[in-house]
Amino acid sequence: MKTKKLINAGENAVDEMLEGILSAHPDHLYAVDGMPRAIVARHGPRQGKVGLVIGGGSGHEPSFLGFVGKGLADAAAVGNVFASPPPDPIIACATAVNGGAGVLFLYGNYAGDVMNFDMAAEMLAMDDLEVRTVLSTDDVASAPADQREKRRGVAGNVFIFKAAGAACDLMYSLDEVERVARFANERTYTMGVALSPCSLPQTLKPNFAIGESEMEIGMGIHGEPGVARGELAPADAVTDTLLDKILEEMKASAGDRVAVLINSLGSTPLMELYIMMRRVKQRLDQMGLVIHTSLVGNYCTSLEMAGASITLMHLDHELQRLIDHPCDCAMFRVG
């Protein structure tokens, strides 16, 4: 059975989406001439500032290009649905945001992204543009703690991008921006649950099968297998399962502050997300942890997949200041 989507043709969906985004947000975004998949912040890049380039596959909106703007990412390279952008738009992004202080590539740990961003970095080095790379690895379910470098980057990207983008905006050096990005990644933890599949615009068919009364803990944002499948449980029990994994690894102490993200994978409504947020607050209160800031909504989606993820960033004074730093993006603002 085919799914229903408001598209014209699957093969044109990404480019037509980008046309719509640029039409809706001309004060925030523009595309590099001749390179429609290289989206740049109008008021982000400037001389002497480290440029921050993020990116990845489409289908996760508002990630990634929704976080391009002053105070956050300077540019995003856009790939096809669930596919890495090729090197050309990555190079175009880096060139557009180069203010003479170097460029940081910051993106999720997926093989295709690593290959293409690394290729772009090598080509830029030949033009004497210094590029550093940090991979986000916040998905607790995707590898053991002692193999964190193998984990995927998922919704925790939002907080990691935010911290790194603020460091860039505050005119940190490239060394310091890289340090902040790595530290932010180390302090960010995400666990998700999927309830139903999504379907790609080109196929209009579910990308995995799951029973009507089942859920899958730890499923990736492209439908990668999770760590456990079972009967759908009440919201509090599901929230506890996700939080237990995060808190076991985070090792926070009473009085510590955290940033919380309750993220919809696409079709899970705010009602359900806020029910989860309620339980997160109860659990963190019991531990004496302080919620410094919370985000609830669509931040890193998987097309129309039903499900949600919970992210905690374990704050220190520096990360708290960077998370609070103002930013103005097409789909996200602080301050």
Results as ranks from 00 to 15, higher is better:
Val227Thr: 06
Gly223Val: 03
Ile221Tyr: 07
Gly223Leu: 01
Pro225Lys: 01
Gly220Gln: 06
Arg229Ser: 15
Asp236Val: 06
Val238Glu: 15
Val238Thr: 14
Ala235Ile: 11
Val227Phe: 03
Thr241Arg: 07
His222Thr: 08
Arg229Glu: 14
Ile221Val: 13
Lys245Cys: 04
Leu232Asn: 14
Asp240Gly: 05
Asp236Ala: 13
Gly220Cys: 06
Leu242Ile: 07
Arg229Asn: 10
Thr241Met: 11
Ile217Gly: 08
Gly226Cys: 02
Gly220Thr: 09
Asp244Thr: 02
Val238Gly: 09
Glu224Arg: 02
Gly230Val: 09
Asp240Tyr: 04
Thr239Glu: 00
Gly218Ala: 06
Ala237Ile: 12
Glu231His: 13
Pro234Thr: 05
Val238Gln: 15
Ile217Asp: 10
Val227Gln: 05
Glu224Val: 02
Pro225His: 01
Thr241Leu: 09
Gly226Tyr: 02
Gly218Leu: 10
Ile246His: 04
Glu224Ser: 03
Ile221Thr: 07
Ile217Val: 13
Asp236Phe: 09
Val227Ile: 10
Gly226Ala: 03
Val227Tyr: 04
Leu242Gly: 09
Asp236Met: 12
Gly218Asn: 08
Ile217His: 10
Met219Cys: 10
Gly230Ala: 14
Ala233Met: 15
Asp240Lys: 01
Arg229Gly: 12
Pro225Glu: 03
His222Gln: 05
